[in-house]
Simulated assay, not measured.
Amino acid sequence: MTDFVKVTEQESHYRNLDKKPVSEILELINSEDQQVPKAVAKAIPQVEKLVVSIVDKMLAGGRLFYLGAGTSGRLGILDASEIPPTYGMPYGLVIGLIAGGEEAIQKAVENAEDSFEQGLADLEKHFVSEKDVVIGIAASGTTPYVIGALKACRSRGITTGSISCNPNSPISEHADFPIEVVVGPEFVTGSTRMKSGTAQKLVLNMISTAVMIQIGRVEDNKMVNMQLSNEKLVDRGTKMVMEELSINDYEKARELLLKWGSVKKAVDSAG
């Protein structure tokens, strides 16, 4: 696109950062960060359309894939990894993939994001199909690994979404449900792990949380299906059972929770 401008790569509004005192650096970063939720709010109608589509697919037995490179890929993996413990969903229903594979989670893998074919190859390892939804994440909106995957998915009738931080980005052309959160130039020029990364994290939080609520993994405002994987969560679950069943005996509620393995099952068993 000849008129495409990478706002994410434009020069920072601030100069001489290396000469500023720490207090001013922190205040300026915070000031910039406050612009992110405002930009996300403008994209809520786009996010809503994607969430509705994901809910329909997951209720019909489909899965959700996140696909990205660098920071974007890591954010997708982070969001996907939180779904089983938080909502008691089986592993493999929300999957995060990153250019360069597992090695790239902790360190950069040279040229990993430059292949138009590798994204689809990674998805095919999980037997992606038209029952699934694939969301490409790329702050710039130009990552070949992501664009190639989305383009191939659409040609196969697989529902696609995208999250980018530039207006009219190329990635949006290949998404059925494009989301563009334009946060402006970064505090450090081109450092998209900052405002752009924050925007992507907020949108991913919105997508996965709204989907989990819609498919019944939350009751009232509580994570009634969370995994009891540590003592903190057992304690939280015990207090939920006490509240839901009007039990004043902590040990009795705890015993009931551990017997059934989740708040929801413990409460339903006493119903």
Rank of each mutant, 00 (worst) to 15 (best):
Met1His: 15
Asp3Ala: 14
Phe4Gln: 05
Phe4Leu: 05
Lys6Asn: 15
Val7Ala: 00
Ser12Glu: 11
His13Leu: 11
Arg15Phe: 06
Pro21Gly: 02
Pro21Cys: 03
Val22His: 08
Asn30Arg: 10
Asp33Pro: 14
Gln34Asp: 13
Pro37Gly: 03
Ile44Cys: 03
Val47Asn: 01
Glu48Pro: 02
Val51Trp: 07
Asp56Pro: 03
Lys57Gly: 05
Met58Leu: 13
Met58Thr: 11
Gly62Phe: 07
Leu67Arg: 04
Leu67Ala: 02
Gly70Thr: 13
Gly70Asn: 14
Thr71Leu: 05
Ser72Val: 04
Gly76Val: 10
Ala80His: 13
Pro84Arg: 06
Pro84His: 06
Thr86Lys: 05
Tyr87Glu: 02
Gly88Gln: 03
Pro90Arg: 06
Val94Phe: 15
Leu97Val: 02
Ala104Glu: 09
Asn111Tyr: 15
Glu113Asp: 10
Ser115Val: 08
Glu117Trp: 04
Gln118Thr: 10
Leu120Ser: 03
Leu123Pro: 14
Glu124Thr: 01
Lys125Ile: 01
Lys125Gly: 00
Ser129Asp: 08
Glu130Trp: 10
Asp132Ala: 02
Val133Pro: 09
Val134Pro: 04
Ile135Thr: 05
Gly136Glu: 02
Thr142Glu: 14
Pro144Leu: 09
Tyr145His: 11
Val146Tyr: 10
Leu150Asp: 06
Leu150Trp: 08
Cys153Pro: 11
Cys153Tyr: 11
Ser155Glu: 15
Arg156Tyr: 10
Thr160Asn: 01
Ile163Lys: 00
Ser164Pro: 13
Asn166Phe: 00
Asn166Thr: 00
Asn168Gly: 06
Asn168Ala: 06
Ser169Pro: 04
Ser169Met: 00
Glu173Gln: 14
Glu173Ile: 08
Phe177Met: 00
Ile179Pro: 00
Glu180Pro: 00
Glu186Val: 12
Val188His: 09
Thr192Ile: 13
Met194His: 13
Ser196Gln: 01
Gly197Thr: 09
Ala199Val: 00
Leu202Lys: 05
Leu204Arg: 10
Leu204Ser: 07
Ile213Val: 15
Ile213Arg: 04
Asn221Thr: 04
Asn225His: 15
Lys232Phe: 03
Met240Gly: 09
Val241Glu: 12
Met242Asp: 10
Glu243Ile: 01
Ser246Ala: 15
Lys252Ser: 15
Ala253Val: 14
Arg254Ile: 07
Lys259Val: 09
Trp260Met: 07
Lys264Asp: 10
Ala266Met: 07
Val267His: 08
